[in-house]
């Protein structure tokens, strides 16, 4: 065989394999929507997305996904409040503040946290965090503190505030969206911090030099120069972190409490979308409405994460550098 023929053949094969990922992505979309189509067709898109009742095994069954969607929204917001500041702070610590010896240890440690099996995080949440919340924190917050407040006799404090603690900070079960948010935070910190760290490291050294030569301190330089110039990278970190939280299954399955109702308070239980799929798929009869409904949830999850990926890709390409004046 002439070598040119061989080279051409190799190039064709390699290119064909290179398209494998595209095909897989298309197949994932195809199969999800194929299996999900029936539920939306049969029940109606609006009724599925905004239906308030998820009773898939009742007779007749109801497939309102709104409580599941709100479950995901609630844990995502709660987790973001913790994970975004912690993740970004970790990145700033590693990239800007830490002594290089600390950095050499902290970086792999965070990477190990990223590889931590989520089932173990869920397990830890179940056997450690949940009991701490319900057996230890709840009595303090909803019994001892109100008692103490009432005994002071100070207006407002001894009445309204005390009642708030008594009513709202009683934790009926440790398996609720707050516990889920705590464990999800452990999952999201390494995701956010590793991407954010890349963004911070990419800020040109000359910006830092200029800032230091003007007599700016380390914090001023970080806050007014480094962070503003890496805003786009940091947003990508946050978006991908949110994608991780939305799609994380085992933690919400094990510690979110499992109730398919809309959570109204931080100690309510919920059944976020991935948890519903994981918990119910084993019992859903093949090609039943329930089976199709679970694929419907999967399709929504796929669309959400797909959208987040597109958004982060768009941001990272569009806004390479951002004006720093806005921050000041």
């Amino acid at each position: 065989m002439r070598w040119q023929t061989k080279e051409k053949a190799v190039e064709r094969i390699v290119s064909a394999v290179g398209l494998f990922s595209v095909i897989v992505l298309l197949l994932i979309g195809f199969f999800l929507f194929k299996e999900a189509f029936f539920i939306f067709y049969k029940i109606g898109v609006m009724k599925v997305l905004f239906g308030m009742a998820w009773y898939p095994t009742y007779e007749p069954p109801e497939f309102g996904m709104f409580p599941l969607i709100m479950g995901t929204v609630a844990v995502t917001i709660l987790t973001s409040l913790l994970a975004i500041p912690l993740g970004i702070a970790t990145a700033v610590y590693i990239a800007e503040v830490a002594h290089h010896r600390v950095k050499e240890i902290l970086k792999p440690v965070i990477e190990m946290l990223a590889s931590f099996p989520s089932v173990v995080l869920g397990f830890f949440g179940m056997v450690v965090v949940a009991p701490i919340l319900s057996n230890w924190l709840s009595p303090i917050l909803s019994e001892h503190i109100p008692e103490l407040l009432r005994s002071t006799g100070i207006p407002l404090l001894s009445t309204t505030v005390a009642d708030f603690f008594y009513d709202k900070l009683f934790i009926a079960s440790g398996l609720n969206i707050s516990t889920a948010a705590l464990m999800l935070t452990a999952r999201a910190i390494p995701v956010i911090s590793s991407i954010a760290e890349d963004a911070l490291t990419a800020v040109p050294r000359t910006y830092r030099e200029a800032s230091y030569s003007l007599g700016a301190g380390k914090w001023d330089t970080i806050w007014r120069v480094v962070i503003p110039s890496s805003v786009s990278g940091l947003s990508v970190a946050v978006i991908l972190g949110i994608g991780t939280i939305v799609g994380e299954t085992m933690i919400v399955l094990m510690v979110a409490g499992g109730a398919a109702v809309i959570p109204y308070w931080i100690f309510d239980a919920a059944r976020p979308m991935p948890a519903a799929i994981a918990a119910e798929m084993a019992e859903a009869p093949f090609r039943s409405l329930h089976y199709h409904a679970l694929f419907g949830i999967g399709a929504i999850l796929f669309l959400i994460t797909f959208g987040l990926s597109l958004l982060s890709d768009f941001i990272s390409k569009k806004y390479r550098s951002v004006r720093i004046g806005e921050k000041i």
Binding site: Y207, E209, G215, P228, I324, G325
Partner: peptide, 16 residues
């Protein structure tokens, strides 16, 4: 550094 400033070889304005 406030009292002893510095100007670098390559102009390095901030992106603002």
């Amino acid at each position: 550094r406030k009292r002893v400033g510095m100007v670098f070889q390559k102009p390095n304005p901030f992106p603002s």
